[in-house]
């Protein structure tokens, strides 16, 4: 329970602004007001402005509206509880653990569109595994963007982990091959593979992800054990398309929600869970390697709506 509480407080700290905006907004909006159609409309507006999306917002409020009209929901406090409950159901139970290879290196493939925050998120994951006493190797497979390899290299120096890299403009699958081979030979605990940012509409690049996956899988059976999609928390409904397309091409197993330290509300998470089954696994809340938290739906909702 102590651990759970510390997770909540850490998340809360990261989400302060989100919380201030949504909580102070939603709580003060709801509490102390009479429950009527106007209040329901205002709550709807607030959810929409948090990027929850039209469909998920409807789903969250549907029951409340029906109950209100049937006279079963009469107090605004109950509306708040109802929302909390619905959000928790939508976002699914507690955190889904990261998969771990039963023997040999656990391989994590990190994907996402350009500028989503992949490299910084990788630094955070690496720091996390390092702190847990695991040996970590990084694979710099973004051979496309200028400076990308160097960016990962600087992080690896700061974190004291090794990195396998290739030439700028080289074949990313070849680098993935080398990285997987090195990870197996050195028997590291975790291999994290960075990939070039790609828009989900770029078909050839999306298909390249499949190739990278199969190359890794041939070196290390069962790999990649996790394929994370890094999502920018400021993204709107297009995040759904990203989740769908990246899943189709790279079998995404989890979402890393980056940049939740701005004013973005991260409500897109609800839209994604409404539209797909992909769990959110991590939340990035700052620029330093420590600014990462495992996603916990209950804690997230508490931080979002609770005291």
């Amino acid at each position: 329970m102590g651990l759970f509480r510390s997770v909540i407080s850490k998340l809360k700290a990261g989400l302060t602004r989100t919380r201030q905006a949504l909580t102070s907004g939603l709580r003060s909006l709801i509490l102390g007001r009479r429950l009527d159609e106007a209040l329901l409309a205002d709550v709807e507006k607030m959810l929409l402005e948090a990027d929850v999306g039209v469909a998920a917002t409807r789903r969250l409020l549907e029951g409340a509206r029906d109950d209100f009209r049937a006279g079963k929901l009469t107090r605004s406090e109950d509306l708040l509880e109802h929302l909390k409950r619905e959000l928790k159901t939508l976002l699914g139970g507690p955190a889904v653990e990261m998969a771990q290879s039963p023997s040999g290196p656990t391989v994590i493939l990190v994907t996402g569109i350009n500028g989503a925050g992949k490299t910084t998120s990788i630094a955070k994951l690496a720091a996390k595994y390092r702190a847990a006493g695991k040996s970590v190797l990084l694979g710099a497979c973004d051979t496309f963007r200028a400076g990308a390899v160097r960016q990962l290299e600087i992080w690896s120096e700061r974190l004291g982990v090794e990195v396998v890299k290739g030439q700028q403009g080289g074949d990313p699958a070849a680098v993935a091959f080398d990285a997987a081979k090195a990870a197996a030979a050195r028997n590291v605990d975790v291999l994290i593979i960075d990939t070039a940012g790609r828009l989900q509409t770029q078909d050839p690049l999306m298909r390249q992800l499949g190739k990278i996956r199969s190359v890794i899988g041939r070196q290390i059976p069962g790999a990649p054990h996790e394929t994370l999609l890094v999502l920018d928390a400021t993204t709107g409904q297009n995040a759904l398309r990203q989740a769908e397309e990246f899943s189709r091409h790279a079998q995404v197993t989890g979402i890393f929600l980056a940049k939740l330290d701005g004013t973005a509300k991260g409500g897109i998470v609800a839209a994604i869970r409404h539209g797909t089954q992909i769990p959110v696994k991590f939340v990035g809340v700052g620029e330093t390697p420590e600014d990462v938290e495992p996603f916990d739906a209950d804690a997230f909702v508490e931080a979002l709506l609770g005291e």
Binding site: D51, D232, T234, G236, G262
Partner: peptide, 12 residues
């Protein structure tokens, strides 16, 4: 500005 930005676009 990223064209995929959601509601937060107005705030930033």
């Amino acid at each position: 500005v990223d064209a995929m930005t959601g509601q937060d676009a107005v705030r930033s």
